[in-house]
Design a protein around this nucleic acid. Structure first.
Lengths: 226, 226, 226, 226
DNA sequence: TATGAATGAGCATTCATTCAT
DNA sequence: CATGAATGAATGCTCATTCAT
């Protein structure tokens, strides 16, 4: 189906290699610190090829950021009918694993570090990443509110509370200290506590939901991919 | 009182001018992108003067980071007996104003962006900033727990919940989008909502405390300095 | 035969131009005084090309020294059966011409001037130049001793006497005074006198040999290449 | 007698300190490699003082070279009536010790290394050093010739033979290899051999003189100061 | 199409030199 | 008189970018 002429396939493969190399170099050295030489060498292509494919350092950077942003933040996944608490539990771990993945953190550091020089990139990142997740979460929370399981006035604030309660602390720490990825146990603490506070504040049946949460938490950290 | 010889005063003034210029240039261009020429020009001194004062680009950067961090993060201020809710309210606005100040955000972006190349600076930032505030907050919360006003198991988690509920959303947005400082009204929303959730989860007398919060919130945003 | 691709030929030509320019600039300004800008300008290439070819100033210098030393000091040439005196005469003129050549003197001044900072270069120069000649001379003298034409205990000392008698004075003068190359007539004086002393001290048949020397000397200075 | 006003004495002391420091720095780093900062620091004075005393780097260098040249090469000392061979023996050791002294070698390397950029300095060095010694030696040799002890046509050549036979080899080696000072035993070899060849060539009574030389040589190396 | 080779402009840093005190 | 502080002009070296092949 999607079979391409060998020419085009070759071109795409090279493009991929360049983008991958560029990500590594940019993430490690920052925009200004990265050199086209380093990227070309890591990709195993010559520098003119780089320029033929991407025009300039700035364009390469922009292309890369767009591409990464789209590929790393998968769509918000509709949870699968396990009930409120189990669904929130799954959601929390899924986003923790995504957002605290070293590659994702490197990208976030890059975006933040260059936000002043490349404002559009930062803004686009926000729009495509966090805000999309937020909207997905809002829809989900609104559905649960309609089912009578949650109670709140402002779905956006509720969604942001959820993120802030669970991910703010470990993410901030990891952003500033690249060597300090939260351990699985710490994460378990943050997830459990964050959900507990969330349910206390928003559940219409906190007794039941907190009990369920405790049960889930007792099974220990969910094993993830990071 | 502490009158200085004109020599020393002149030197200090020049030092200040250099550091201020350096902050601007580093914040705009990142560490690698910043040029000593640009800093010298903005400070109105010659390049050798820069080197006489600070030794090297790296030392200038480190000095700047330390100095900015220390000057911007005032000590954690013991609240002054207005009662739990008013105290939390004051605290929230104080830290919102500090943490969301444009200069502080620039500094944070810089620290984050260079975290991979200057790990000590990122770590020192954590230790001097967030962690100090966190410890202050924990002490405060523990005192309130002793007074029977709050209930929680883990003071650290509670303190981090407070920060995450109030500041995570606007700070993340501002970090990624330098042009998007939260408006006063938005901040009011975040502060009010964050404290509401916190009190629902931790207050031993939520009815009373939430009523007080609502009263405070109705007076509108606290006017700050930024 | 060894025809090269135009690429390679071009490269080698440029390399030559750079090395020639470097010799001139280094010889005139010393290692520290020489600037890569000056070398590049004289060679008619851009500075980055210099670095692509030779990596660094130090490497360029080292390469240059090795190359010059090897190209200037031809192998010790076995004399060709003209008899003792004529052979010594030819040898003396050959080495006088080599050692007192302006380029060779520049190189020697450079090596000496930088001996403290580049000890290996000075040592390598000794090993490849004087010591090789010395060994060649020792072999020759030993052969003549075996033929009964010369008498001495220590071939090394004899060889060094020969060099010192003939070349020490003009070389020392030329080393210190770049503008003062010995005139052909002066050289004739040194060569004739040096060989006379040498033969008086070492010949087993001084009467005959000195007569031959006088005959050679009367034909005037040997015309050389410098 | 030579008591000076304290002012002037202080000035001269400082001048001395500067010149001594300059010698060290120039000798170690060459003219271009030496920095006025380094000289000032080593002398313990401020840079403007350097310029007040000596005007410029070039003038400081010139002054230094003149001063050193005059102070290091003492006058040719008239030998003291020990007889031809003992006098030559003493002379040889005296000049070996002078010329092979590490400080003197450093100075010579400097002069040679900078001969192209400072031609007058090299020429002046020749005139004040070697040539003065040479003239003294010529006078001495002529006197011995008048006494009937030596026989030669050209006193200048004879004097240069003496120098070349004794000092050429060790000095050349030491010039090129700063770390390789000739050992006392080597020097003994060179002195003994050089004088032997000289006497064979020029003595009117070689049998007697060579015997005396052998006797002197058997007492081992003359102990010197280096 | 892909590349080895080239370069102008800029980098952090240091220099010899000179004020202002 | 001596100096702390300042600087214009290099220095060695690297960068993003572009020919010529």
């Amino acid at each position: 189906m999607t079979s391409l002429a060998p020419r085009a396939r070759n071109r795409m493969a090279k493009e991929r290699r360049i983008l991958d190399s560029a990500l590594k170099v940019f993430a490690n050295q920052g925009y200004s610190g990265a050199s086209m030489d380093a990227i070309a060498a890591l990709a195993g292509v010559s520098k003119p090829t780089l320029y033929q494919y991407f025009g300039s350092k700035e364009q390469l950077f922009a292309t890369l950021m767009v591409e990464q942003r789209d590929s790393m933040l998968g769509a918000f996944e509709e949870p699968d009918g396990l009930g409120l608490v189990a669904e929130l539990w799954a959601f929390a771990w899924h986003y923790a694993d995504t957002v605290l993945h070293p590659d994702f953190l490197s990208l976030a550091r890059l975006t933040i570090g260059e936000a002043q020089r490349f404002p559009e990139i930062g803004r686009a990142y926000q729009a495509a990443g966090p805000e999309r997740v937020l909207r997905g979460m809002m829809d989900y929370l609104n559905a649960k509110k309609a089912e009578g399981l949650l109670a709140f006035d402002d779905a956006e604030l509720a969604a942001e509370d959820l993120w802030g309660l669970i991910l703010s602390a470990p993410r901030n720490r990891a952003l500033h200290d690249a060597a300090c990825l939260p351990k699985r146990d710490d994460l378990h603490r943050f997830v459990t506590n964050g959900l507990r506070v969330f349910l206390k504040a928003y559940s219409t049946n906190p007794g039941h939901d907190l009990a369920q949460l405790t049960a889930l938490a007792e099974q220990g950290p969910t094993t993830g991919t990071p």
